[in-house]
């Protein structure tokens, strides 16, 4: 069985896995990082979204062996050492952007990537389109969109530019 080494939430990890093991299975079953969820089997729902080398990916559609040498960040790794929340987590709470919490970790990981890759600003339309890969059945997305818009200034340390209509 393949041996893999990678970094997960800043810590080096080695594991022996079957070649068919998915990254999400490595995280949940071997590393007991159960914050990353599985909500579908057709790569649609995005509940399993984590960051691999800074890019948000669906960990149910990536083999664990493909993460060899990579740096993986999961929802568990977002909380600061002093226990304080990442601005995206904080804004999700502030704006009631979660209900059952199941899609939340993937939604937060995806949202962080969306904000990080749009330093020029984000319109509501861009946020909605940018969430194409994440499904939520509880919130109707309204408050998720609000939370992401609210996190943008905190993550970029400046006011969110108002999109010219």
């Amino acid at each position: 069985m393949p041996q893999i080494s990678l970094t997960v939430n800043g810590k080096p990890v080695s594991a022996t896995v079957e070649a068919r093991t998915l990254l999400v299975e490595l995280l949940r079953d071997k590393l007991h990082l159960t914050g990353t969820h599985v909500g579908c089997d057709t790569s649609q729902c995005g509940a399993c979204t984590v960051q691999v080398d800074g890019m948000s990916v669906k960990s149910c559609t990536m083999l664990a062996v493909q993460a060899e040498g990579a740096s993986v960040l999961t929802i568990e790794g977002l909380v600061n050492a002093d226990g304080s929340l990442h601005p995206m987590q904080a804004m999700f709470r502030e704006h009631h952007a979660l209900q059952c919490g199941y899609c939340t970790p993937g939604m937060v990981m995806s949202a962080i990537d969306l904000v990080e890759t749009h330093p020029e600003g984000l319109s509501e339309e861009q946020i909605r389109h940018g969430l194409e890969g994440n499904l939520c059945r509880c919130t109707g997305y309204h408050n998720i969109v609000k939370a992401i818009a609210a996190a943008w200034p905190l993550m970029h340390n400046k006011a969110l530019p108002v999109a010219a209509e």
């Binding site: 070649a19 068919r20 089997d41 057709t42 149910c60 559609t61 083999l63």
Partner: peptide, 26 residues
């Protein structure tokens, strides 16, 4: 062959394909 895997891995998950070896082109 495995490229990005965005179609191939879901196909494998559904057991619709049974490769002997998966060659990662990465």
């Amino acid at each position: 062959a495995l490229a990005g895997g965005m179609t191939f891995i879901p196909v494998l998950k559904q057991r619709l394909n049974k490769p002997s070896t998966v060659i990662d082109l990465g």
